[in-house]
Amino acid sequence: MKTHLMLAGALSLIATMAAAEDKPVLTVYAPDYFTSEWGPGPAIEKGFEAICDCDLKFVAGDVLPRILLEGDKTQADIAIGLNTDVTAKARATGLFAPHNEDTSDLTMPVKWDDPIFLPFDWSELAFIYDKTKLQNPPKSFEELLDAPKDAYKIVIEDPRSSIAGLSLLLWVKDIYGDKAEAAWEKMAPKVLTVTPGWSEAYGMFTDGEADMVMSYVTSPAYHIMAEEDDSKVAAIFPEGHYFSPELVAQLKTSKHPELAQKFLDYVLSPDFQGMIATANWSFPAKLPHAQLPEVFQTLPMPDKTLYLGEDEAEKLRGPALEEWQRAFAK
């Protein structure tokens, strides 16, 4: 009897495997963090496979560099997890196709009319600190710059190797314009160190080595919801906070264009949008405020959102980087 059951089990397993092979495969290129079980990948895969009659396959790694190297022979049907810092270059390749979605009713503080890159979630940059440890948090960007050099130590990400670092560079440039270099000179003595990526910086903050870290306004939500710890808060500045969306796009060369389009539809569906807040610790791109998890509804948010469009960001990146390097060299 037992062996029969095992045989039946094995056969049905083979049957499902064979069925899986018959199904079309949608290949989605995504960043490394995306596909781990703590990232949004597994939930997306499960959700989409339930409606698509297909096999969604993630390929984790450096999304855009890989697509650029592969050119029009890329295996990717979809690229997800792109940031606005690379869209100008991605667009110039002509490899991406329009998303065909209605973006007029997105729930973002920024109006979105990009026909190719579709946002699926967003957040805004913020300095995060521990309110039980830091007595005198800055109440504005100006105050942060003017604070004495031993008031607090901040850890930031390198704009040459990290998206968060690059967004910070643009944030400062957007607020201070021609005076950005002077702003960096004021900030530099309070910068404990510059890390290659967000993870190292955030780890140094949670270990207590740094008083403040460059992260996102949504970071405290993780600590509240997953750790029941409300001591980590975002410093909210009246100058405005820099907007940071995460994007998805389909490729022109996709062998399953209908499936790819269906995936983009799914991205804006209530199912996807409903789970992305806690899967990726950021705001969904299209979900009414009242449907957000409670913690997200009550997160302190800046009144003003800053955002440089793609062209301006691309134009300012080089000079802003040079200013940043000069300011730290002094």
Binding site: Y33, G39, V59, A60, L69
Partner: peptide
């Protein structure tokens, strides 16, 4: 670039844990 997105090593798992708080 060669990653198939399925196999994961211990250091990569460590980084993924860090990357998700």
């Amino acid at each position: 670039l060669f990653s198939d997105g399925q196999t994961r090593t211990l250091p990569l798992a460590l980084f993924q844990l860090m990357g998700s708080y």
